[in-house]
Nucleic acid binder design. Structure first.
Lengths: 333, 333
DNA sequence: CTGAAAGCGCTTACAG
DNA sequence: CTGAAAGCGCTTACAG
């Protein structure tokens, strides 16, 4: 009952344990007849190899680590979905490591290393370029294959799967510009990190090209805090368009604008990033950049499996396509 | 670099590997002086025990499995947060197992068993009472401690952490009744499962007590599909209150009602379950039952650690408190 | 308080 | 194609 070992199988099948092991790992090396006999016994006894013992002996755990800073974010769970599906296809298990604010990233990563994982997926869009470098070093030093998922790094030696956030930022700003908006704000986060830096870069580029002044307003990611911040806007600022770096920021901004009697999209166009459920449940529906989060998870996991099997990987930096979903919060011609 | 073994430490400290192991696992059995010396070497060498080898030798993996059917659900990620925090406190690692629709639950659970986990948390609110029984059997047969998180089971031998969904259903219905609503609908899911069965039971009880006719409308969990379903409502049905078994259902219902010119809360009161971000970002803000999802995760994990250490656990069935957050989608006196 | 030795359940060269 | 044996890196009685 759950504790059948390879010895039991060997005994019952009248072979050595080495043969049983081969049937499991290199079936082609075992004579058809023997193999069938062993397989039959395995089934009868309901034998499942102890993955721990296997891990120790083979030095492979068929387990990958997922490092996350904030499990709570909507995008994370979808990414986990993509990762999980592909991991299951390739028979990998998934172990979760969450980084809490009060913890040292290096320390966690050392734990991750001690876990004898075959590879690691690092999901965290709130990483600065400098932190990325530290992370890279730890994995390289320990020779652990890794992939950054939905994190941007300019270092060409860093394997990553992402969308082109700069381009996305540029495009959504162009939508506003083409609609003749002049005072276009980017609502970004107070804390700087690489992904949002890219969005800001794209936004700024589009604004400058159009001869407009870029206006980045930094706010908290917390919807409650935002209410206060945003309230000031409609007293003293000229504004006819706003782009939130997250849907939740965009929606709460839009709600507050409407509370202040501003018409969306007539007087104010609003757009977000990520195309989450929030975008669909808001009124008016929110125009948003669709980020294929599930795919980012799935593709990173697939890239990681390649890296783990050290196949010659042609492209370790994958940029997935995004697109703009236009809805009622912007004026669409 | 990363592959220092216990032998290296023993050699450098001039002791046997048994002593090193004791320093790590039973420090009180080692003389202060020796212990310090070993500890120093461990630090210098950056030694971290190989968890796999430890797992094989001790037959404990300090890893718990989390079985989930749909990672994508908002509640799941928050629950993961609670689980992760407590797991980290107790030094447990967390391994994720997601069940896809096309998979056999038993098969997955057999895998889970083969993983040599110290315990399992089963998070899935879409389990019928019958499925719960199967799940229970597998764990009991294999003597693996387990806890159901946010799943309801009437079997008193099943460890679980949940809120009293029946009571919650009753209370929110009472809110509507006390506001003199007569045609109160419960918007539930097409697929039946224990948690929603409880909500329905509470709703039905309150309605019958008040001499009103219970009206349960079953719909898809998918917001897109709902739109069609819901549209029919405002043509032929009398309705002045609606309770969605999920916030997302409630919000999309509310949106469609407003599109049909119905005033919320004047002509229609709406409430949801779970008090997610949707409830806050909707207009009007949604009245909702606050389910302490993070706590459910944390408490289940704590209960599981008790079970794994087979302390005499006094209460294996924990009901966490919920409360109603009244907002603008209901009329509040 | 410490060490020598067996054992956890596998994999994998090495022979044959 | 198959078996005997060593080894993966630890833990844990058992002696002393």
């Amino acid at each position: 009952m759950g504790n059948t070992t390879i010895y039991d199988v060997a005994g019952a099948a009248g072979v050595s344990l080495a043969t049983v092991s081969r049937v499991l790992n290199n079936p082609e090396k075992v004579k058809e007849e023997t193999r069938q006999r062993v397989l039959k016994v395995i089934k009868e006894l309901g034998y499942r190899p102890n993955v721990i013992a296997r891990g120790l002996a083979s030095r492979k755990t068929t387990t990958v680590g997922i490092v996350i800073s904030d499990v709570t974010r909507a995008s994370v769970s979808e990414m986990l979905g993509g990762i999980g599906d592909i991991a299951q296809n390739y028979k990998y298990s998934v172990k979760l490591f969450s980084i809490r604010e009060d913890m040292d990233v290096n320390d966690i990563l050392q734990d991750v290393v001690a876990e004898q994982l075959d590879g690691v997926l690092y999901l965290n869009d709130e990483l600065s370029e400098k932190s990325v470098e530290e992370v890279r070093r730890i994995f390289v030093d320990n020779q652990i294959p890794y992939v950054l998922a939905n994190v941007v790094s300019d270092d060409p030696s860093v394997p990553m799967v992402c969308i082109d956030y700069e381009k996305a930022g540029y495009e959504i700003t162009k939508v506003m510009i083409d609609d003749n908006r002049k005072d276009i704000y980017l609502l970004s986060t107070a804390r700087r990190y690489s992904v949002n830096d890219k969005k800001e870069a794209g936004y700024t580029k589009a604004m400058l090209e159009a001869g407009l002044e870029p206006k980045i307003f930094r706010t908290s990611g917390d919807t409650h805090v935002n209410r206060q911040h945003f309230a000031t806007f409609f007293k003293d600022k000229k504004i006819d368009a706003a782009i939130g770096v997250r849907d939740s920021i965009a929606v709460s901004f839009m709600n507050i604008a409407r509370d202040n009697g501003i018409k969306v999209p007539e007087n104010l166009a609003v757009a977000g990033f990520q195309n989450t459920k929030y975008a669909l449940l808001s009124r008016p529906n929110l125009t948003s950049i669709d980020v294929p989060v599930y795919d980012i998870g799935a593709v990173s996991m697939r890239l990681l499996t390649k890296l783990m099997n050290s196949k010659d990987v042609d492209n370790i930096r994958i940029s997935l396509p995004h697109y703009i979903v236009k809805r009622d919060s912007t004026r669409n011609k």
